[in-house]
């Protein structure tokens, strides 16, 4: 039993470390701030969560494991809030994203409410 838990946590920690490092490489390689945000979210989600899950298997059933789960919950709930605020602030400051395709002007299908007029809100025109 001990051996199995050890093996699982080994695998989780190794995987988490891999995603951490590759997310950080993405942080260096990506061309602009929006694409870098995607790389950073790999670190925030899969990398951090796998690493911490691996540590949970090391901690066993204890208060420590519970605290590690709190750390996961913290990242889970506040990570997207921070990256959303960052993306919105960057757009607001007028930083132009590198785009391969811009579909912001498209009609949004579905829903029963009337379409809002074509005006873009809070988004600098490209």
């Amino acid at each position: 039993m001990e051996v199995i838990a050890d093996a699982i946590s080994w695998v989780l920690i190794a995987l988490g470390s891999f995603f951490l490092v590759s997310g950080a490489i993405g942080l260096i390689r990506m061309p602009d701030v929006y694409t870098r945000m995607h790389a950073a979210s790999v670190i925030d989600t899969l990398g951090a969560m796998l690493l911490i899950l691996g540590l949970v298997f090391q901690a066993g059933f204890s208060l420590l494991a519970l605290k590690l789960l709190f750390v996961i919950a913290l990242l889970f709930f506040f990570g997207p809030v921070a990256s959303h605020a960052l993306a919105q602030a960057a757009l607001h400051a007028g930083i132009e994203p590198l785009l391969a395709e811009d579909r912001r002007g498209r009609d949004v299908p579905g829903g029963d409410e009337p379409e809002p007029d074509g005006k873009q809100e809070g988004v600098p025109s490209t």
Binding site: A24, V33, A48, L55, A82, L86, A90
Partner: peptide
């Protein structure tokens, strides 16, 4: 190059610091 890149990097450093403290 922009301030938002730095804030993003700072936020990532914060996440990594939690992981560093844990490990």
């Amino acid at each position: 190059p922009t301030v938002f890149d730095r804030v993003l990097a700072g936020n990532t450093v914060g996440t990594l610091a939690i992981l560093l403290l844990a490990s």
